[in-house]
Write a protein that binds this DNA or RNA. Structure first.
Lengths: 104, 104
DNA sequence: TCCATAGTTCGAATATAGTCGAACTATGGA
DNA sequence: TCCATAGTTCGACTATATTCGAACTATGGA
């Protein structure tokens, strides 16, 4: 497996996005990716959880079209698909990110 | 029970909102309430599901602070708490409603 | 008082999710 | 080639959700 496959935006449903953002761990991941302003490895996010749990959450974030993961060497670089999500669901991710930053 | 109790907005978490909106049936309810522009009874929404299922979904929508239910006679009148949600999580519900109307 | 209406609650079945250890894969470096 | 690193996959367990029929509650009207 050379690179991880990601869904096309037209395959992504609003419910997928909502579901992915309904878990505190995933919301935390999304918030950190947004604030980092650069690609982060899973390890850099370190939420004190086993690798398998983190992997599970990333899988769901990818399936929801929220996160894009590029394999670079042994690392998986993760980034939010902000622009694409914004185009498909204007305002949704942005307002969630604003709400997230207020509460944290 | 005279009237149904609703959470205060400061008790509502972003994850509650996201979770409530992650189910297609509930998203449908929210969309219809928004478009109706007036209070609707559970029955008026009629999504072809048993009363007990609808009641379950309304319970979750109420718990998330999304829906307010006023008892009037034998009917339960439901409305979105648009203004309050907008104040607490600006843009979130509104952008979801726009996305909903596009897809429907 | 009796009945119909509108919804809630209960209970049980089924399905889906979250968690985490252990084994696995892929890459890069010594 | 051997090893370490970074993540994924698998499997099992536990927890939480969804669904829906049946029984219940509350109100209004005949």
């Amino acid at each position: 497996m050379r690179q991880i496959k990601h869904p096309n935006m037209d395959q992504v449903e609003l419910t997928d996005i909502m579901y992915a953002l309904s878990d505190p761990t995933r919301l935390e991941i999304v918030g950190r990716l947004a604030n980092a302003g650069r690609k982060l490895t899973c390890g850099e996010l370190d939420l004190n959880r086993p690798k398998s749990s983190m992997s599970h959450h990333f899988k769901i974030l990818r399936a929801a079209g929220l996160v894009e993961t590029l394999i670079e060497g042994t690392e998986h670089m993760n980034a939010l698909r902000v622009a694409e999500i914004e185009q498909k669901f204007p305002g949704v991710l942005q307002s969630v990110l604003i709400a997230l930053n207020k509460s944290s």
